[in-house]
Amino acid sequence: MVQKYQKIIDFLLFGILPAGLIHTLYLLLFKTPFSNDAILMITGSIIVLGILPWIFYHTHENEDILHDAQHQIWMLLFLVYVFQLAYLLFFSADFARDKVNLLDGNYGTALQIQWENGTNLMPFKTIKQMMIIFDIPAISNQIAIINLFGNFIAFMPFSFFLPKLFPCMKKARCYLPCIACIIIAVEVTQFFTLTGTMDIDDFILNFGGALLCYLPLYSIYHLHNQPYKNTSL
């Protein structure tokens, strides 16, 4: 039963995850999330990328070849995701990250201003401020949506990729500290590179999304105390 569910999950994720990554790249390049072209591209990606692994699985019998091919595909998708996430976090023009100049001679002053005015170490302070925006007609709700929803889903794909690529991440005691360290590293890097604020609420949202996405997969993979097996497609 567990093996059956794992194969179904693999087929779904091989269609959905690449489609999501392609759509993110589309947004970065063209900024039109709800155009007909974008919807058609996402639908086509899910269909094509969902069918291809099924065809590959039924045309290859060598387990070693299947395992290696699956691992390489997951690694490629993981790298695409990491590069896109890094662009959004450190280089995106939409968040004015492309205007940062660390060599203009005012780095120390800018860092001090960032610490005094941009850093938040009080849990739920920023989240409450974002929620208030929904009650203020003069301020676009998009600001709150990006800050809340965007931060919540940003690290969710790690819950798929890390257990697939690194066996130790199949255990919650390894995965949870790892994802926490990754998020903290991102927050600290954003602070010192002046590409974003260091906010405890960002950590709460990032970690909450990564945890929420990991729990159902963990439950399925460890159903009846069965060890997770990296099933080949």
Rank of each mutant, 00 (worst) to 15 (best):
K4Y: 07
I9A: 12
Y81A: 08
L111P: 02
S219N: 05
V82C: 13
Y221V: 01
P33G: 04
F124D: 01
L40K: 13
Q3N: 12
G196M: 01
L111H: 03
K164N: 08
I153H: 03
G196S: 04
F161W: 06
V48Q: 04
Q112R: 11
D135P: 00
Q112E: 12
F207Y: 14
F124H: 05
F30L: 13
D10N: 15
K164A: 10
P123L: 08
L13K: 01
F203I: 00
Q70F: 03
Y218T: 03
L29N: 06
T126C: 07
M156R: 07
F83R: 06
C178G: 05
A86W: 04
A172R: 13
I132S: 13
V100G: 02
I55T: 03
I139D: 05
L29E: 09
I65D: 08
N36G: 12
L29Y: 06
G196L: 01
F207C: 03
I46M: 10
L49M: 14
C213G: 01
L29A: 13
L17E: 00
K31W: 01
G50L: 06
C168L: 13
A93Q: 11
L40N: 11
M130N: 13
Q114P: 00
L12P: 01
I127A: 10
Q112Y: 12
Y107V: 12
P177Y: 07
H71V: 06
Y5P: 00
S232M: 12
I113Y: 02
Y81H: 13
Q114R: 13
A210H: 04
L217G: 13
D64T: 15
L40P: 00
T32G: 09
A172D: 03
P137W: 12
M130Y: 12
N206P: 02
L223P: 00
I39C: 04
F155H: 06
L28M: 13
L162K: 04
N106H: 14
F149S: 07
L27C: 06
R173F: 09
V82E: 07
H224L: 11
I39A: 14
S45F: 05
L40V: 04
F166V: 15
I179W: 03
Q72D: 07
F83C: 14
H224F: 10
F149D: 01
F160E: 05
I73L: 15
T231A: 11
L233K: 07
F155N: 08
D94T: 02
L102M: 13
L28W: 04
F134L: 12
W74C: 11
K229L: 11
P216S: 08
F34W: 11
K99A: 13
W54I: 15
L103M: 11
C181F: 11
I9S: 06
K125R: 14
L111E: 01
F134I: 08
T59I: 09
D98R: 09
F161E: 07
M75Q: 12
Y214D: 02
T193P: 01
M198P: 00
K31P: 00
K99L: 14
Q129W: 08
N225F: 02
P163V: 09
T24D: 04
A96C: 05
H60R: 14
A185W: 01
N230K: 14
N225G: 08
E61V: 09
D199I: 00
G20E: 01
F207M: 12
Y5M: 15
D37L: 15
R173V: 10
I113P: 00
K7G: 00
F124M: 14
Y26T: 01
G209E: 03
H58R: 15
I153S: 05
F30A: 09
L12R: 02
C168N: 08
P177V: 09
M122K: 14
